[in-house]
Each structure stands twice: as C-alpha cells, then as structure tokens.
C-alpha cells in the first residue's frame, strides 16, 4: 500500500511541476497555454543533447546538472519568444484567439521536434546506477529519489518565492487586478514574461526527470501536458497550491487505479478524465479554486 503511495507520489510530483506552468500563466493572463507541454519537450531534448555530448568529457553527475540548466534555459527562452510573438499581440483580441494560437504552436513544435530529432525515442545514457534500494517492504529506485527530492524542493522554493519576494507578490497582484498593479508601478509585461520563464523552466525539469524512467520522444509533451493540465483544473486553475495538490492526487489515484482497483494498464490514462469529470461536477472551479466561475 505504502509502495503504491510512494510510486503515485513520484508520478504526481511530475504532474504537479508541469501543472504549475499552466496555473501560473493562467493566473496572470487568464489563458491556458496549450503549448506548455511542447515547450518542455523541446527543453528536454536540449538537455538530452547537452548531456550526451558532455558526459564523454566530464563527470556524468555534473554533466547532468549542466544539462538540466540548459534544458530549463532553452524552455524559458522559447516560452519568452512565444509569448512575445504569438500571445502578446493577441492580448486584447477575443479570448479564443490566443488559445488557437497556442494550439497551433503546440502542433508546430511537436512536428518540428519530430523533424529535427526524429520520431524514434531516445534515452539519457545514464551511467549511474539505478538498482533499487530496499527499505523494509519499500522499494525505492535512485531515480525515484531524485525525482521526489528535486520536485519537492522546487515546489517549496516556489511557494516561498510567491509568498515572500517582491516579484512573487507582484505576480499575485497582477493575477488579481492587473490594472491596479500597473498603478502601483508594476510593469505587467515584465511580470508576465517572468511568469512564462518560471513556468517553463519548472516544466523542463519535469520533462527531464520523467525521461529518466521513460524516454524522450516528440509527443512526450502532449501526454504529460494533458495530464498536468487536468491536474491543474482539478486543483483549481490559477491556484498554485491547487496545482500541486491536483498533480499529486492524480498521480496517486492513477497508481492505485492500476495496482489496487485492477484497472488495465491500457486504461490508466482514463483515470485522469474520470477524476476530472467527478471533481468538476462536485466543484466546478476545482478543489481549491475560487467560487467565481472563469471561462477559459
């Protein structure tokens, strides 16, 4: 039982990291960035290339850290570029316009990745050991440990960043009342750009972590993106704790669904949709969402 909880938590923390990207951007722009999954996929590819190149020269663990930073940076850069050319010009257009722009970009990015990197999945050639460690009845792989440690650290850091720092508070101000935020001297464009950077960098980390156990392929972003989007909606889109809660809840329930309820592995992904429907019937704006109904 505890084992499933641990496994679920691991997957869930990945969903949570990606869900944060949706929710942060939704917070400041009230818009779902459907290209988020594909932006993190590109970052993951860059990390893979950097890692496989560097590990022949330097210590693999150092190469891996550099690869993560490179992946975060390239996702962030790409997100800033997309925001500038595809979203900002549509800021005052009808709400459907940026949404369509995002969906279009998502298709373009995954196809471009297939073209450049090929459709065959690739893996991080990790020379370090992934033999499971036994802890009483509990089995933990070092990758699992790495995933949990990294994602939980990031979430704690993000929490304090949003709560305590000047920029974090400005993000909250922009998300509640952008016009008033401007009157306070907050450059909303700068905060929006920063939010994209933050969200996509977290997403890249999630993409890299999940690829340790699975692989890197061009549609990697679409599946994890969809799950994370559902997690963000379950938790209450725009709500940061909600994204974390929704991600972990989804990961745990998916794992239990397969292991305990005996849902066939092939139907595992439908758990997310069933959960989404149930939660939205019960609380239309998500578990921690505000009561105001927001149109997407």
């Amino acid at each position: 039982m505890l084992q499933h909880l641990l496994n679920g938590f691991t997957v869930g923390s990945i969903y949570a990291l990606v869900a944060l990207g949706y929710t942060l951007v939704y917070g400041v722009l009230k818009f779902i960035n459907f290209a988020h999954g594909d932006v993190l996929m590109i970052g993951t590819y860059i990390a893979l290339i950097v890692f496989n190149f560097l590990r022949t020269f330097i210590e693999p663990s150092i190469a891996f850290i550099i690869a993560i930073l490179a992946g975060m940076a390239s996702s962030a850069l790409l997100a800033v570029l997309i925001e500038r050319v595809a979203y900002r010009p549509l800021r005052h257009a009808p709400r459907l316009a940026p949404l369509l722009s995002a969906i279009g970009l998502s298709v373009i990015l995954s196809n471009t990745a297939a073209l450049i990197f090929g459709t065959k999945s690739q893996r991080f050639e990790m020379p370090f050991n992934n033999t499971p460690i036994h802890w009483g009845n509990l089995v933990v792989t070092p990758y699992q440990g790495l995933i949990l440690l990294t994602s939980l650290t990031m979430m704690v850091l993000l929490h304090f960043f949003i709560k305590m720092t000047r920029t974090g508070k400005a993000m909250r101000a922009v998300s509640e009342k952008p016009m008033v935020a401007q009157l306070m001297g907050i450059d909303t464009d700068r905060i929006i750009r920063f939010t994209f950077i933050l969200g996509s960098a977290l997403g890249a980390v999630a993409g890299i972590l999940v690829s340790l156990d699975y692989k890197v392929y061009p549609t990697l972003g679409s599946l994890i993106g969809l799950k994370a989007f559902i997690a963000a909606v379950i938790g209450g889109i725009g709500n940061i704790s909600g994204a974390m809660l929704g991600g972990i809840l989804l990961g745990v329930l998916e794992t239990y669904g397969v292991a305990v309820l005996g849902i066939p592995v092939g139907y595992k992904d439908s758990v997310a949709f069933v959960l989404l429907i149930i939660i939205l019937l019960w609380r239309p704006s998500g578990i921690l969402g505000s009561n105001k109904r927001e149109k997407i």
Binding site: R166, K169, A170, R172, A173, E176, K177, V180, A181, M184, I186
Partner: peptide
C-alpha cells in the same frame, strides 16, 4: 485593493 493579499502586502505593493 488586492483582496487575496494581506493588508501589509497591499501596503508593500
């Protein structure tokens, strides 16, 4: 006012 923020956070803004 930023109603989700505390009084002192509003002042900080």
């Amino acid at each position: 006012i930023f109603s989700d923020m505390t009084v002192v956070e509003n002042i900080d803004m």
